[in-house]
Amino acid sequence: MRRTALRLAGNVCLLTAALGLTVPVAAGTATAEPAWTDRAAATVLPQFRSVRLPISGTFTGPSEQIALTGTLDVSVITLPNAAGGGTAQIISSLDDTSGTGATSGGRYDLVGAHRDDLPFSAAATTTLKVRPAFLLISPVVPPNPVVPPNPVQPVTVSVTVGSTGVIGAITATVGTPAP
């Protein structure tokens, strides 16, 4: 019985000492935001989001209008600054994407991946727009010579990024933008 009482008293003393060490620290930082909150983590830690988007539409190719269908994979990584704002990296890559020429009826293949690094604002939500470059492989129709791939920009990718680096909507549209 006496041994149990001594053990209990020792545990109470250890608990009291542990509380005595943590209470002054907690009281001294009561006005500061705790380091473990979501807001603090968003301003320090990189954010990542990846989506697979179906794409379709018509764009102006080197020699004719091309109706495009396929899939675009978009990955976004934000590296926020401690004071807000930062840099967003947007990686776009095509998957099983082809087009049909409006005049020739020929089949075009589109391949490639593109990376863009853009700053985002510390003041408000920013919409980042990029036009990744891909390779357009023209149809080989004898007796025409083999034509090397042409770089084209048929897609506009839009990404919404908050001031703390939180990634919102990711969209893609096909078409040749007005000059």
Rank of each mutant, 00 (worst) to 15 (best):
Thr58Val: 15
Thr58Phe: 02
Thr58Trp: 02
Thr58Asp: 06
Phe59Lys: 07
Phe59Gly: 09
Phe59Tyr: 15
Thr60Trp: 00
Thr60Asp: 13
Gly61Lys: 07
Pro62Ile: 00
Ser63Ile: 06
Glu64Leu: 01
Gln65Phe: 07
Gln65Thr: 13
Gln65Ser: 10
Ala67Asn: 10
Ala67Val: 06
Gly70Met: 11
Thr71Gln: 10
Thr71Leu: 12
Thr71Val: 14
Leu72His: 03
Leu72Ile: 06
Asp73Met: 10
Asp73Trp: 08
Ser75Lys: 09
Ser75His: 08
Val76Ala: 13
Val76Thr: 07
Ile77Lys: 13
Thr78Ala: 01
Thr78Tyr: 01
Leu79Pro: 02
Leu79Trp: 06
Leu79Cys: 08
Leu79Met: 12
Leu79Asn: 13
Pro80Phe: 06
Asn81Val: 01
Asn81Pro: 00
Asn81Glu: 12
Ala82His: 11
Ala83Thr: 09
Ala83Met: 07
Gly85Gln: 01
Gly86His: 05
Gly86Ser: 08
Thr87Cys: 07
Thr87Ser: 12
Ala88Phe: 02
Ala88Val: 03
Ala88Ile: 02
Gln89Asp: 04
Gln89Glu: 12
Gln89Gly: 07
Gln89Val: 14
Gln89Asn: 05
Ile90Trp: 03
Ile91Gln: 10
Ile91Leu: 11
Ile91Glu: 09
Ser92His: 05
Ser92Asp: 07
Ser93Gly: 13
Leu94Gly: 04
Leu94Tyr: 02
Leu94Thr: 03
Asp95Thr: 07
Asp95Arg: 14
Asp95Ile: 00
Asp96Gly: 12
Thr97Val: 06
Thr97Tyr: 02
Thr97Met: 05
Ser98Asn: 08
Gly99Asn: 04
Gly99Asp: 02
Ala102Asn: 11
Thr103Ala: 09
Thr103Asp: 14
Ser104Thr: 11
Gly106Arg: 09
Arg107Thr: 15
Arg107Glu: 14
Arg107Ile: 15
Arg107Phe: 13
Tyr108Trp: 12
Asp109Phe: 14
Leu110Glu: 04
Leu110Asp: 03
Leu110Asn: 05
Gly112Ser: 11
Gly112Val: 09
Gly112Phe: 08
Arg115Gln: 14
Arg115Cys: 09
Asp116Cys: 05
Asp116Trp: 01
Asp116Ser: 15
Asp117Cys: 09
